[in-house]
């Protein structure tokens, strides 16, 4: 068969398979999240796998050793932390009506104060709206919990499964995909793929390490302070820390809100500020300079826009993954631009 004809057939076949895969990922429940988490796992574990392979282990063993070890560590950590986490979450659920009642009382007080400045109907509407929002928010979180748990369990099994095969066969899959790239663009695409993969790996590892350190510092600080729900709040701060600029602020808000509703002293507020501020200062002063080269900086306007689009498309999950996705797009587009302007530039 003619080479060009064969190439066209191969290209058509692979493009169809790729399209089918994307349709599957976007329309099958939990598959997108699992695939994204598998990618994160892939970039986290790859340096370990390469290290073991460098020591002379076969690829399969190099993948299995860190995979089994990390799975064991994860389950041990879960067993150790889960009871405290569940009890803190349960206690928060139990305390919530009390906090809501206090928030309602507070809004009535604010309404009374604001009544002097606002027309009566506006003030009444404001209180009703605040009450409605608070109840809806609390209802959504706790009613949706069983769904979150069942989704999380599916993801918990599917993501490692996908990650394992990405580590084992990912390279040959990428090679097979590269094989269908037309000769004229091959060097360009191959170099681009390598650059994007390198930068994404650095970005994901840096961001997660940063969040882990912030989470551990907040958890340690809150536990020393003997603050209620320390683990839940630290997890929230760590996850929100993935969002630049606004994330650390939103991550600290629940602790201040709970302290305020719980009638905390000014000393306790100061301690909270030292913990959350300290974690950010340590992050900015010690961790960021080491990792800064690996973190893709996004303009604040881009961050806010990405979060808004993410929340519109996929809710809370969309807000969290919007920044890594935008950063990946930025890396891809800037690498593509650089290549397209330099690669074919004549001397």
């Amino acid at each position: 068969m003619n080479i060009r004809k064969l190439r066209r057939r191969k290209l058509l076949f692979f493009v169809s398979v790729l399209l089918g895969f994307f349709v599957l990922v976007f329309f099958v429940r939990n598959l997108l999240v699992s695939a994204l988490l598998a990618f994160v796992g892939f970039y986290l574990i790859t340096p370990l796998v390469d290290l073991l392979e460098r020591r002379g282990m076969p690829r399969i063993t190099s993948v299995l050793v860190p995979f089994v070890t990390l799975t064991a560590v994860f389950f041990l950590a879960t067993q150790w932390l889960l009871p405290s986490f569940v009890s803190q979450f349960g206690s928060l659920k139990g305390d919530l009506p009390r906090y809501l009642e206090k928030a309602q009382r507070l809004s009535v007080e604010i309404e009374a104060q604001a009544g002097h400045f606002l027309p009566p109907e506006t003030a009444a509407r404001l209180t009703a709206q605040v009450e409605e929002r608070l109840l809806l928010w609390a209802h959504r979180i706790f009613e949706g919990l069983p769904n979150y748990v069942s989704d999380s369990l599916t993801v918990l099994f599917l993501a490692p499964f996908l990650c394992f095969f990405m580590l084992l066969d990912g390279r040959s899959l990428v090679r097979q995909l590269l094989a269908i790239v037309p000769n004229h663009y091959f060097e360009l695409v191959m170099n681009l793929q390598h650059e994007i993969s390198f930068q994404m790996g650095g970005f994901i590892r840096a961001r997660l390490l940063e969040s882990l350190i912030v989470g551990v510092l907040v958890a340690a600080g809150l536990m020393i302070m003997d603050f209620k729900y320390a683990l839940v709040l630290a997890l929230f701060a760590a996850v929100l820390n993935l969002i630049p600029y606004v994330g650390p602020v939103i991550g600290a808000l629940p602790a201040y809100l709970l302290a305020f509703l719980g009638g905390a002293t000014s000393g306790e507020f100061l301690a909270l500020t030292v913990i959350y501020g300290g974690a950010q200062v340590i992050d900015a002063a010690l961790i960021l300079p080491i990792l800064v080269a690996k973190i893709v900086n996004l303009h604040p306007v881009t961050v806010v826009l990405s979060i808004m689009i993410g929340s519109q498309l996929m809710g809370v999950l969309g807000m969290i993954i919007s920044i890594p996705v935008t950063s990946a797009l930025k890396v891809t587009l800037s690498a593509l631009y650089q290549h397209l302007t330099q690669f074919r530039d004549e001397i």
Partner: peptide, 19 residues
């Protein structure tokens, strides 16, 4: 990477960045 070229097809051209 194993690549197949048709007669007359350029492998690379002068002035391109080589990798």
């Amino acid at each position: 990477n194993v690549r197949t070229y048709a007669p007359g097809e350029p492998v690379f051209q002068q002035g391109e960045i080589g990798v």
